[in-house]
Simulated scan of single mutants.
Amino acid sequence: MELNYKLILASNSPRRKELLSGLDINYEVVVIPGIDESYPDTIEKRQVAQYIAQKKAAAYGDYLKENTLVITADTVVILDNKIFGKPANEVAAKQMLRELSGHTHQVITGVCLTSAEKQHSFSVISEVRFCTLSESEIDYYVTRYQPMDKAGAYGIQEWIGYVGVEFISGSYYNVMGLPIQRLYRELKNF
């Protein structure tokens, strides 16, 4: 795909870098530390990821030179109208996985495409069902894989995905953190 833009990925996520690299397009990673990722309590839960992606995009105003396009994204996990972001520590990670165990949850990634001329954002929703996980499986995964940088305290592409995911409806790559097929179409149309 040929883009008329210099592409900036505003993320340090190795998964997002890997997925975007899979499109065979050139991009550069630029990360501004300390962007506020809070959201108002009044916002509908399914809109949170897109809201945060747009909020991240607002921080990149200085990078919006002519023919530059910034991609920002955020992923959340939702179970029973409760948002599971990134866990603060191992205790929180284990608690998240206990709650997700044996249930179907939603993974929502919001993506925002921003240039100096325009902005377009979208969200993609996938559903994931975990089998019932034992305490030893949860302990093993959290201790070994340290999923504190992942929404919902898990990476579907890691051990926990191999042994715990019974069912997925929607984009697998969305669950990894970037709905790459949809992003490809949106970039072509941008």
Rank of each mutant, 00 (worst) to 15 (best):
E127H: 13
Q50R: 15
P147M: 04
K150V: 11
M1R: 02
F130Q: 05
E28P: 00
E186S: 10
V70A: 07
L3R: 03
P179M: 04
I43Q: 09
R15H: 10
G152D: 02
Q181G: 00
Q106R: 13
K6L: 04
D41H: 11
I43H: 12
A53D: 08
N174G: 10
K118N: 14
G164A: 12
L97S: 12
Q47Y: 02
Q54I: 13
M1K: 04
E137A: 04
P14R: 09
Q47C: 06
K65W: 02
G34V: 04
Y173Q: 15
L9S: 13
A151R: 02
S126F: 10
L64D: 10
A153D: 03
L64A: 09
T143M: 04
E28G: 00
C112M: 05
Y140W: 14
G177Y: 07
P147T: 06
N89T: 01
Y51G: 03
R46G: 00
N89H: 07
D139R: 10
A57K: 03
Q95I: 01
V77F: 05
V165S: 13
E137N: 01
E186G: 07
N12C: 00
L100E: 04
Y140K: 11
K86R: 12
Q146H: 14
R98Y: 12
V142F: 07
C131P: 03
E137L: 02
S169Y: 06
Y141Q: 08
H105L: 05
M148L: 15
I108P: 04
K86E: 10
L7Y: 09
N67H: 15
G102V: 12
F190Y: 15
S123C: 12
G110L: 10
I83H: 04
